[in-house]
Each structure stands twice: as structure tokens, then as C-alpha cells.
Design a binder for these strands. Structure first.
Length: 580
RNA sequence: GCGCCCGUAGCUCAGCGGAUAGAGCAACUGCCUUCUAAGCAGUAGGUCGCAGGUUCGAGUCCUGCCGGGCGCGCCA
């Protein structure tokens, strides 16, 4: 039960009833009625602005209207008090019995607690990571991976039909550069070049991708196909090296993601899209609507470009859809730009049945948001929507000191190293402790510290305390007595301590948090919510110690409820191994 | 120069058009014979960058300015 949604509907129903009886005008717009927990708990459990919102259209004074509504709401079962306050708020206080019933809700719902019908089964495509297949993932990719994956899980919980998708940029110059790097590693492995050739080429800037991760790939290729390409010209060996390298990099990336508990439903290939004519099709679509033309762009103002030459280009009329200028679709060598392929890709997603698309990008791609949204508006003829979540940088720190990273010096820290060092759950949680568009500090020391200051520990510790209660209860009472069904029927009326009710109210707001976070596409709200729940639990814990009043059902409920957010940190999750 | 993001307690940050703007850290004061004190409770700390506007009501929405970050033709 979503307490807030339920009472909102009740208020709307009362307004309708008042209209029917003639005490209010008919046809009032009730959609603006809000109900939420008041900021100040002294104001009660629920507060509604209904009277203030309706006062204008109904031509009544807000407080007068509030009083009428309050009298009616008071008759609803579970409502203890209904007071009018301030400019016309209706403050409801609910009975303890009402709150106790929420524990039974939670226990009986189990993992499904908080599931919402908000999405009504509508399809949503969430595309994230989509890193170039040129090497292992770094920490920045990791943030996008978690934001995307948590958002996908969140939308699922809110009733959307979610597809998790990864777009492989395997068609551009980057993967050719990768193939050339692999070629050199391969020549060394084949004995055709000296061992230090790679290091020299990298220093000279002749190869772009150079990690040691290409060494085993080169050896595998040599073992598979022998050295038959040693004398061959580039046009002969490039495709083979490229596809071998890309496949190997994708395996590497898949393993990195696996370590984070992330799997994709769809891995889409840019190369296949191009080869199957998807880009041509998308361009024909746009041409047919007069949105493509040959033109010359103005040089960007305020930025010095020494080599600027005006030249005619194939352009998309992005400026018709809110972008500043029209955008090029073709490079001077005649091949498509990344943007052209991306238009085709989004058209492909749309045609596969996704009017709602979410892309998670690094903040350095911020300049592309408008043109991509313009393109989506054009190709979907205004029936599709693209939301882009930009993820800001992750600053790696160790004990407050920045971890210096440079590819040149070779001390670049990969995502895998970080995850292996701190653990998946810690990484996932910390990545959600900031809004996606705010920079995030990731401090190796702090995230593994066992202090209040470390949100991961704080939440884990609450869970560990829950489990501790359960362990003792199991020993004394046995498994049978602790089943969710039995606990739901327990004498919950004994839970009258403010700290107990506090925690119940916190748990009761979970469905509302899920819906709000899903609607806003903001998975970080879940991480903040968990800290609030943990805080309420720690508060209760200490109270119980002091009063020696064992309220273990709350613990059990909390622990059960926790299973409902397992999607958020998958598998064993929030393990308290580290505490021991 | 243009666009996007950010500006909230000393620091790091929450904040959904609602009432007297919150949390942690740092500082100070209390709380363990009891299932985890690596925890809890309290005190103190604010011109929500500035100025207008919309609204019954603005930290939240709009406009302008100030400050910081990112981006700005054939890289992805």
C-alpha cells in the first residue's frame, strides 16, 4: 500500500462527493492535489495542500474549504486527527493501528514490497556504459554503469518493461587504431619486431592504445591464425585484427561489468547497423522530410580554430528542433559521422518499440544532448522522447589525497582494480551517493572505513544488527515462528514507542520513494532513503537497549523489507562479512 | 563568445511549488552489568551566489547578472 497515493485518492473522492452534493462546483481539477509527509513531524503524518489548490477555482477561502474537507477525512478509518493549519494545510495524524497494519503489508509482500504499477508495463530502453571497445573500463565508466543499472532496476520496480542496452562503437576510427595497436603487439609476439618496439611507438604517439591487455590478445591471435599476415598490406590484415581485437575487448568489458553484477539484454553494434544500411535508411527518412541539406557552417564563435576552412557539408537541420546550429552527418572522406550513426541507432531503438529512451553518458558528451534530442524528435516525428543522464567525473582519492592517474605513466587505475579492492556493493552504493550530475569523490580509505561517516558501512551496520536480532530469535523461537506470515499476525499493538513508529513510517514511505525516484529518473534517491531507514533503525536500536523492551518484530520487518531493495545491490549485497 | 551543469551551515552534500530549510563531518555535552557503543541522543552553526518576476506560497519555476566546471566542424 502506498499510503500517500491512497490518501490522495481519498481526498479526490471526497472532493467529488462534495461536488455531487452541491457543496462544491463540479469539474474541479484534482490533479494538483498533493500529499506528503510534513517537514515538521509535529504537523502530523500527512499533509495536503488540497484546500489551497482548490480554493481559487472553487471560489472559497482556503481555510474554510480545508475545514470542510478535514471534517470528512476524519471519518476515514485510521485517521486519528485532521487539523487545519497555516494558510490552509490539512494535517492528518494516523492511528498506531493503521501504522501497525503496514508492517503486515510489508511482511506479506516480501520482495514485492514497493512494486508499483506506475509504468503500466510501458517499454523503456536504458542505454548505458557503451564504452568504446578499446580497452578495460575505467572508474568513470563504472559510475555510468551503476547509474544506468540502478535506474533500470528502479524503473522495473516501478512497473516499466525495461531493456538494458549497450551500444558498441565498433565502426569508427577508434577501433581501427585499436587494430593497429594490436598489430604491433602481434608483430612483437611473432618475433618480427623487437620487444621494445611497442614502448617506442607509444612514446612517439604512433599507437593509441597500448595497455598490456593487448599482449595476450596478440598471442591468442598468433596461436589461432599463425603469422600469415606479416608481409600483408594494411587493407588485408586490418579487418581481421579489428574484429579479433573488438571481440576480445568486449569480453574484457563484459567481465568488468559482471564483477559489478551488470548484464545487458541487448548489445547493439554500430558496425552491423552501418553494414545493414541502417544509417542510409535513417538519412533517407530525414531527407524525405527535407531535414538534410548541403551547407556551410559558420566557425564557432569565441574559439580559435587555426585550420578553419568553410566547406560544404551534409547537414541535419537540428536547429529546427532546438539545437543552436545544424549538425554534420558526413566526414570529408565520405563516411558517416558518429552523430549520423547515432541517429540511425536511436531510430532503430524507436522502431524496436521504445518511444521512451534513456541514455547515460559521461559529462564530456554534454554538448551532444541537444542535437541528439533534436534528432530523436525528428525521427520519431515527435512521438518519442530521449532523456540523457550525464554523469560527472569521479575523483579517486586515498585518505583525502588525490590518486594521480596518467595513462602515460602507466599508473592508470582501472574499474576492475577498484572493484576488486573495495567490493561490488561498496562500489555500487557509493556511486549512488551523489546526483549523477554532481562530481563524486571516491576515497579508498573512507569507503571501507567502519564509521558513521561512511554511508555504506552505516547501512550495512543497520542490516547486520537486524540479522543479529534474527539470529538470536531463531535460536530461541525456531524458524516456524519467524515466518513472514506468522509475524504479520503477531501482536503488533505493542509497538508504541516513538522510535518504533518512526521506523514503521520510514518503511511505509518506500513505495512513494520508488515512484518518485523512478518518475524523476534519479536512482540516487534510493541510496539516500536507505540511509534514512538505517538512521531510524539505529535510533530504535539504542532506545530498545535503554528500555530493555525487545521489539524484535521491527527488526525482522526491516530485514524482510530489505529484501525488497535487493535489486538495488544485487546478490548477497550489503554483506556484513567486513564487520567481522 | 555561445550552450549545458553547478552555487544551500566552516567542510561534504540532501531537499518532491508548501509551513520555523535538513543530514553527516569537524567542535562541545551526555548514553554500554543486557541481542553489535564501529552505535545513539543533545548543543551550536544559514542573507539557500545577487537582483527582479510568476504564484495564495519559491532553495525549488522564469529572466538578467556574478562565480566555478564541462563542451563547442570531418573524435567517439
Amino acid at each position: 500500500m502506498n499510503v500517500f497515493a491512497w490518501f490522495r485518492e481519498r481526498i479526490a473522492a471526497e472532493v467529488a462527493a462534495m461536488a455531487a452534493s452541491g457543496s462544491l462546483p463540479t469539474g474541479l481539477d484534482t490533479t494538483r492535489i498533493g500529499i506528503e509527509p510534513p517537514r515538521d513531524p509535529a504537523h502530523g503524518d500527512l499533509a495536503s495542500n488540497a484546500a489551497m489548490v482548490l480554493a481559487g477555482p472553487a471560489k472559497r477561502r482556503p481555510r474554510e474549504l480545508a475545514l470542510l474537507l478535514a471534517q470528512r477525512l476524519l471519518k476515514i478509518e485510521g485517521v486519528a486527527t485532521a487539523e487545519v493549519a497555516g494558510p490552509g494545510f490539512i494535517n492528518l495524524r494516523l492511528t498506531d493501528t493503521f501504522w501497525h497494519a503496514r508492517i503486515a503489508d510489508i511482511l506479506l509482500a516480501g520482495v514485492a514490497y514497493g512494486d508499483s504499477g506506475l509504468g503500466e508495463g510501458r517499454p523503456v530502453n536504458v542505454e548505458y556504459v557503451s564504452a568504446n571497445p578499446t580497452g578495460p573500463l575505467h572508474v568513470g565508466h563504472g559510475r555510468g554503469a551503476i547509474v544506468g543499472d540502478a535506474l533500470a532496476g528502479l524503473l522495473q520496480k516501478a512497473g516499466f518493461r525495461v531493456t538494458r542496452e549497450y551500444y558498441v562503437n565498433d565502426a569508427g576510427g577508434q577501433v581501427d587504431a585499436l587494430a593497429r595497436s594490436l598489430r604491433l603487439r602481434w608483430l612483437i609476439a611473432a618475433g618480427a619486431e623487437p620487444a621494445d618496439a611497442f614502448e617506442r611507438a607509444r612514446t612517439a604517439g604512433e599507437v593509441q592504445y597500448g595497455g598490456d591487455y593487448l599482449v595476450p590478445v596478440a598471442e591468442a591471435l598468433l596461436a589461432q591464425d599463425g603469422d600469415r599476415w606479416i608481409e600483408a598490406p594494411e587493407q588485408d590484415w586490418l579487418p581481421a585484427f579489428r574484429s579479433f581485437a573488438v571481440a576480445a575487448m568486449l569480453r574484457l568489458i563484459r567481465d568488468d561489468l559482471e564483477a559489478l553484477g551488470i548484464r545487458f539484454d541487448v548489445v547493439a553494434s554500430e558496425r552491423r547497423l552501418v553494414e545493414e544500411g541502417g544509417v542510409d535508411a535513417a538519412l533517407r527518412f530525414l531527407e524525405g522530410r527535407g531535414l538534410v541539406y548541403e551547407g556551410v557552417l559558420e566557425p564557432p564563435k569565441g574559439k580559435v580554430l587555426d585550420d578553419w576552412e568553410p566547406r560544404p557539408q551534409t547537414l541535419f537541420r537540428a536547429s529546427l528542433y532546438g539545437d543552436e546550429v545544424d549538425r554534420p552527418l558526413r566526414k570529408s572522406d565520405g563516411s558517416w559521422t558518429y552523430f549520423a550513426a547515432d541517429i540511425a541507432y536511436h531510430l532503430d531503438k524507436f522502431r524496436r518499440g521504445f518511444p521512451v529512451m534513456i541514455d547515460v553518458w559521461g559529462a564530456d558528451h554534454g554538448g551532444y544532448v541537444k542535437r541528439m534530442q533534436a534528432a530523436v524528435t525528428a525521427i520519431t516525428e515527435d512521438s518519442g522522447a530521449l532523456d540523457v543522464k550525464l554523469c560527472q567525473l569521479v575523483n579517486l582519492l586515498d585518505g583525502g589525497e588525490p590518486v594521480r592517474m596518467s595513462k602515460r605513466a602507466g599508473n592508470f587505475i582501472s574499474l576492475r582494480e577498484v572493484v576488486d579492492r573495495v567490493g561490488r556493493d561498496v562500489f555500487r552504493f557509493i556511486m549512488l551517493t551523489r546526483k549523477n550530475d554532481a562530481p563524486l569523490d571516491f576515497d579508498f580509505q573512507k569507503v571501507t572505513e567502519q564509521t558513521r561517516d561512511n554511508p555504506v558501512f552505516y547501512v550495512q551496520y543497520a542490516h547486520a544488527r537486524c540479522r543479529s536480532v534474527l539470529r538470536h530469535a531463531l535460536a530461541e523461537m525456531g524458524e516456524e515462528a519467524l515466518s513472514d506470515a506468522v509475524l504479520a499476525g503477531a501482536a503488533l499493538g505493542r509497538l508504541t514507542d516513538p522510535a518504533e513508529l518512526d521506523l514503521i513510517k520510514q518503511l511505509a514511505s518506500w513505495p512513494r520513494v520508488v515512484e518518485g525516484a523512478a518518475e524523476a529518473h534519479e536512482p540516487h534517491r534510493i541510496a539516500f532513503y536507505l540511509q534514512d531507514v538505517a538512521q531510524a533503525f539505529h535510533g530504535l536500536w539504542t532506545t530498545e537497549r535503554r528500555t530493555r523492551n525487545c521489539a524484535s518484530s521491527i527488526s525482522m520487518t526491516c530485514s524482510s523489507h530489505r529484501r525488497g531493495w535487493r535489486w538495488f545491490a544485487p546478490r548477497s549485497s550489503l554483506s556484513h562479512q567486513a564487520l567481522r
